[in-house]
């Protein structure tokens, strides 16, 4: 039964990847990255039971934490860029 879940996760990763490739906006791509991130967490948890090595759940935990930082970094990037645009516009209008 773990197999069924794994396959569902893999297919969903493929779908999310497709979304990342299609875009169209950058937010869609960030969404896709985030989705693949959480799917990886699930995949690793399921796989560590599939392999009979539950001690590898640490990995999934690490992914869950790191993934969040990645998303926040992207947000910060958006904010910085928006500010740069604003200041560029200011200097141009002056």
């Amino acid at each position: 039964m773990y197999y069924a879940v794994t396959i569902a996760l893999l297919v969903t990763m493929a779908l999310a990847l497709l979304r990342a490739l299609l875009g169209p906006s950058v937010y869609d791509r960030v969404l896709a990255v985030n989705m693949i991130g959480t799917k990886t967490v699930l995949l690793l948890s399921v796989l560590s039971f599939l392999f009979g090595r539950p001690d590898f759940l640490d990995l999934a935990l690490a992914y869950a934490l790191i993934n969040f930082i990645g998303v926040l970094a992207v947000l910060e990037f958006f904010r910085v860029r928006a500010e740069q645009d604003k200041s560029d516009a200011n200097t141009e209008s002056r």
């Binding site: 069924a4 396959i7 569902a8 969903t12 779908l15 969404l31």
Partner: peptide, 17 residues
């Protein structure tokens, strides 16, 4: 639970696409 979870994952992925 696992099966339903798998189905939900798939539906979510489909929806995102």
């Amino acid at each position: 639970l696992l099966t339903i979870g798998g189905i939900f994952v798939f539906i979510g992925g489909l929806g995102a696409l």
